[in-house]
Computed example of a mutant assay.
Amino acid sequence: MRKTTPSQRVFPSADEDKSRAGHVASTPQALSPAFRLAFADPDFLGRDELRPVRLQLELLKPELAMGDLGITSTVVLFGGARVPRPGDAVPPKREWLKRFYQEAQDFARLVGGECVRRGGGELVVVTGGGPGVMEAGNRGAHEAGAPSMGFNIVLPHEQEPNHYVTPELSFNFHYFGIRKMHFLMRARAIAVFPGGYGTLDELFETLTLIQTQRMRPLPVLLFGSDFWDDIVNWQALVDAGTIAPEDLDLFHFVDTAEEGWAHVKSALGITE
């Protein structure tokens, strides 16, 4: 989108009018909420009737920011916020989860290296911006010297962005639907690690969109074949006739970062 420079403007900018409005006399009329500029009035923008406007703003803000920074494609990492770091103390029954933090970190480092090789605007790692697998993904990209994005959402817990997200690419969402749309709009590959309800929701929405041809096919990697076979009886879905046998081809099981990256490179035609 072409930008208008200050010297090309015919009318005052929003910032200019906002500044001017702040210098009016402190009369009862000027102090009334009715006198606030509509776009600078948080009480007005927060009204239930303004939900369509807020949806549009939440779609546009990250879209414009990514466009300004030249980001054209991403590799998405989905996975649980509760996956522990390798050095964390956890109950013995959760020790097995630690390796997925490392695999996510290693996978994102490999993706980040390719992102750097392409100039930083392609195959940018994007996560949910929080702890666990999300932190591991942003951390791996950071170690490769690549930018990475975090799409946080306001929650009662686990909403603080991790320290490895590129600050100017750290976004916060109110609407889950808009957040999920942004995850997929530029995606060239999806890597899904063990997680809970949120991860399952993200995985099955992605598979549904591909299955119904509402989204172009792309590599969907499920890290940890044993975990996913325990969680979902894929063959039972086929046997029941609720999915077609070819729907099992919409995703691919991998167990290591190197295996996952090799599959992405092959699918995307990336050569060293």
Rank of each mutant, 00 (worst) to 15 (best):
V125G: 01
E95A: 13
L77F: 13
S225W: 02
T206C: 14
G196K: 13
E258H: 12
W228E: 09
A141H: 08
H163D: 15
R109A: 06
R9A: 15
W96P: 00
G128N: 08
P84T: 01
R51S: 07
T4G: 04
E205K: 12
L221D: 09
R117T: 01
P12T: 04
H142I: 04
S225H: 12
S148I: 12
K18V: 01
H263Q: 13
W261R: 08
G150L: 05
C115W: 01
T206V: 06
R51I: 15
K265S: 14
Q105L: 12
Q235C: 02
Q213H: 14
G196M: 08
L184K: 05
P245K: 04
G195S: 06
F107K: 05
K93M: 04
G132P: 11
H252M: 05
R54A: 04
N152R: 04
S266N: 07
N138W: 06
Y175T: 10
R99N: 08
L57D: 04
G198D: 11
R188D: 12
G87E: 11
V126T: 09
E114I: 04
G121P: 03
E272L: 07
R20M: 08
T271H: 08
M185P: 00
G196V: 05
G130F: 05
R94P: 04
L209N: 08
K3S: 14
G137R: 10
E158Q: 10
P161T: 09
P245E: 01
Q211F: 03
G121E: 03
R99T: 13
P194T: 02
P156R: 11
